[in-house]
């Protein structure tokens, strides 16, 4: 039993090592803050654990990870809790100690990214960071290729207007 547990632990470690960064980055990209991204990260790996034996290939596993992460973000963003909660006042925010600073403060690029709708954010991230093709994105996001292309074009156009002088 203990041997089996060790094996499982190792398996989990490998998965987190392999997909952890990717999942976390997508979650940050979608949720715009790290605290929510933390929750998404945990939820996605719990789901992965329950589903782990059903993957047919690595590509399948990776695509599943991306899709589940984005869907999980959608669920959280669309939940009534999220809709009813507002942003804390600055004074209260300053009293809270975060382990890491929020990303919006770090660069104007991220500020511009944050202004995009979440579907545009996801295609930008998958295209520029994960280097996925439009066909792959269409499969993962379960949308038509033409739709993905449109989203990408519109996202670029919007970013161009927000980041004047930056070439996309």
């Amino acid at each position: 039993m203990s041997c089996e547990v060790d094996e499982i632990e190792e398996c989990f470690n490998k998965a987190i090592e392999k997909y952890g960064d990717m999942v976390y980055r997508i979650a940050v990209n979608q949720m715009k803050n790290r605290s929510d991204a933390d929750d998404i990260f945990q939820e996605v790996f719990i789901k992965w654990m329950q589903y782990r034996e059903k993957f047919t290939s690595e590509d399948h596993e990776k695509a599943w990870m991306i899709r589940v992460t984005i869907n999980q973000c959608k669920n959280v963003l669309g939940s009534s809790w999220n809709k009813k909660t507002g942003v804390l006042d600055e004074g209260i925010q300053n009293t809270l100690v975060y382990e890491q600073q929020d990303i919006a403060e770090e660069s104007p690029l991220m500020e511009a990214i944050e202004k995009l709708p979440k579907k545009y954010r996801s295609v930008i991230h998958l295209f520029y960071y994960e280097d996925l093709s439009i066909a792959e994105m269409s499969q993962i996001l379960n949308e038509k290729e033409s739709t993905i292309r449109t989203w990408l074009t519109r996202a670029r156009r919007k970013l161009k207007s927000l980041l004047k002088g930056v070439e996309l």
Partner: peptide, 30 residues
């Protein structure tokens, strides 16, 4: 230009060790 900057920015974003530990713990519990 944009891609490099974007990648550079997101390269810095990683889950904290505490988060990873917590996740592992929860996974084991599950």
């Amino acid at each position: 230009m944009f891609k490099e900057e974007y990648k550079k920015h997101f390269d810095e974003i990683k889950p904290s060790s505490r988060l990873i530990e917590q996740t592992k713990k929860r996974m084991m519990e599950e």
